[in-house]
Simulated assay, not measured.
Amino acid sequence: MDEDGATAVEAVEVYWRPGCPFCMALRPRLRRSGLPIREVDIWADPAAAARVREAAGGNETVPTVFVGPTALVNPSVREVKAAVDRYAPALRAHTRSRRQWWRRRGTSGA
């Protein structure tokens, strides 16, 4: 917990299931973002499936992403990043922008 009593967010939680094309699109993009993520297969974890049903109006809609107190059902990477900025800005310390990546790559070769 932090000084105001809130639980610290350690990672973006991505709930997914095998064969889901939306999951297969989102998960690699989130990995490349540099955000710390925790991926949970709802078919392997009944409690995770229940959490998704609670967030998605009784459906097992994936991907469902949790950032702190908020749940995002089938979000874009932009929506996840906005939720991180609002609910868990400390997670951004793990990321680097594309510009930083490009500079690092461009300066290492010549």
Rank of each mutant, 00 (worst) to 15 (best):
A8E: 14
V80L: 10
G34V: 05
S97W: 05
D45H: 12
M1D: 13
G106D: 14
R38D: 12
W101R: 15
G58M: 06
W101K: 11
A44I: 03
R98E: 15
P36V: 03
R98G: 14
L35H: 01
I42K: 07
R98K: 11
I37T: 11
A49H: 04
G68I: 04
G68D: 08
A56T: 02
R29C: 00
R51W: 01
A55F: 09
A49S: 11
A88G: 11
R92D: 10
A48M: 11
Y87T: 07
P21Y: 06
P28W: 02
R99W: 09
A8G: 02
V52N: 10
A6N: 15
A11I: 06
A6I: 02
G19L: 05
P75A: 13
A11P: 07
T64Q: 04
D85Q: 15
A82E: 15
R38A: 12
R98D: 14
I42A: 05
C20K: 04
R78D: 14
V40K: 04
R78Q: 13
A47R: 15
P28C: 03
E79S: 14
E10S: 14
N74W: 02
A82M: 06
P89G: 10
H94E: 13
S76I: 05
T70G: 12
L91R: 09
L91W: 12
P21G: 10
A25S: 07
